[in-house]
């Protein structure tokens, strides 16, 4: 049972507070992904959990034990770094065995654990090689092997896939997910890539400027973003945001188009509609003037403007392969549940 709790954790560098009180509880065996734009404090938060940064205020608990003052090793965590951080002069075996040697485990035990991890990660043939003789993906696996052999309570991943090429990234993403399931180790994974975030996490935390915007299951965040920031951050291509005015259960967009909204909302709002939630419908009320089209093969992305305004809008058209099939002005209707409303200060209403 390895749980991880953060209680009102804050971090300041001098007078600058960069993490403004983060609270969350991670359950045993859960895979939590922290996602946010560069500089939002996600890596700092992870490094605080690891013990590489001091905690300015608040409390971090692993297995219900306060770890604020403990060295990384005493917390029994393992960390996978963005640039792998393999020891260049050591063989793959020695890299994986290093922490065990320091922990003064017996030779046979070390060998058994490393061999086991190597088999799990398909590294058995490479144990004698130096890191520089390995490909990026293999190095990444060695870095994970180094984490696995210690049998830690918590895995911490700091953007581990960002140095890999796109294809390998997809493959390693699946491997990490499978590995975490099989080993059942509580994991925290930091990334700025929202596809990684959506696919890997049991739960997702969106961090922005040192504040937690939302914490929930990936699909929750997609279906019911709590703020404008989350709405725009999660989902690709990102959500269209159109200014509007709500009254009497109707939302009137800037160009005068009226959409059915919620009766509880009134006043200035921002209406969010995901590109994939607009469907071609000759009778639809939303008219879009075509700008650039991106043909992705399986679908086509149309970037245009809302007719009667200069608000940029993107639409995803599954099943449309060729730009020539499209008219210059197309009409769309909004799918059910496809309209999100946010107040002027960015909160969901």
């Amino acid at each position: 049972m390895a749980t991880l709790n953060l209680i009102d954790v804050k971090k300041s560098y001098g007078k600058d507070e960069v993490i403004h009180g983060v609270n969350f509880d991670i359950h045993d065996k859960e895979f939590v992904v922290i996602v946010g734009p560069s500089g939002c404090g996600k890596s700092t938060l992870l490094r605080m959990m690891a013990g590489l940064e001091t905690v300015t205020a608040g409390e971090i608990k692993i297995k219900d034990r306060r770890v604020n003052e403990l060295e990384p090793m005493e917390r029994n965590i393992a960390m996978v770094f963005q640039n792998y951080a393999l020891y260049p002069h050591m063989s793959v075996f020695d890299n994986m065995a290093y922490s065990l040697k320091i922990a003064k485990l017996g030779k046979a035990e070390i060998k058994a654990r490393v061999d086991n991890a190597a088999k799990l990660l398909q590294l058995s043939e490479y144990l004698k090689r130096k890191p520089r003789q390995l490909s990026g993906g293999q190095r990444q696996r060695v870095a994970m092997g180094r984490a696995i052999v210690r049998k830690p309570d918590v895995f911490l991943f700091d953007e581990p896939l960002s140095n890999l090429d796109a294809k390998l990234r997809v493959q390693m993403r699946l491997e990490i997910k499978k590995l975490q399931r099989d080993l059942g180790v509580t994991s925290v994974y930091v990334t700025h890539d929202q596809v990684e975030a959506m696919t890997l996490g049991d739960r997702l935390m969106v961090l922005n400027g040192g504040y937690v915007e939302q914490f929930g299951s990936p699909i929750d965040l997609y279906e019911r973003p709590a703020s404008l920031f989350v709405a725009e951050f999660i989902g690709s291509p990102s959500m269209n945001i159109i200014d509007g005015h709500a009254a009497d259960g109707v939302v009137e967009l800037v160009n005068g188009v009226r959409l059915p909204g919620s009766s509880e909302v009134a006043g200035a709002v921002k209406a969010g509609i995901r590109p994939e939630h607009l469907s071609l419908d000759p009778a639809g009320v939303i008219a879009i003037r075509k700008g650039v089209a991106e043909q992705l093969g399986s679908s086509t992305l149309v970037h245009g403007t809302l007719d009667g305004s200069d608000i940029a809008i993107s639409v995803a058209l599954p099943g449309v392969h060729r730009e020539e099939q499209l008219d210059d002005v197309m009409c769309f209707s909004v799918m059910e549940q496809g309209l999100h409303l946010f107040s002027a200060d960015g909160k969901r209403v």
């Binding site: 690891a50 013990g51 590489l52 060295e71 990384p72 090793m73 965590i77 393992a78 960390m79 770094f81 951080a85 393999l86 020891y87 290093y98 922490s99 320091i102 922990a103 180094r146 210690r150």
Partner: peptide, 8 residues
């Protein structure tokens, strides 16, 4: 940092 996490 990796060495620190490894307990060195």
């Amino acid at each position: 940092e990796a060495a620190r996490v490894d307990g060195a």
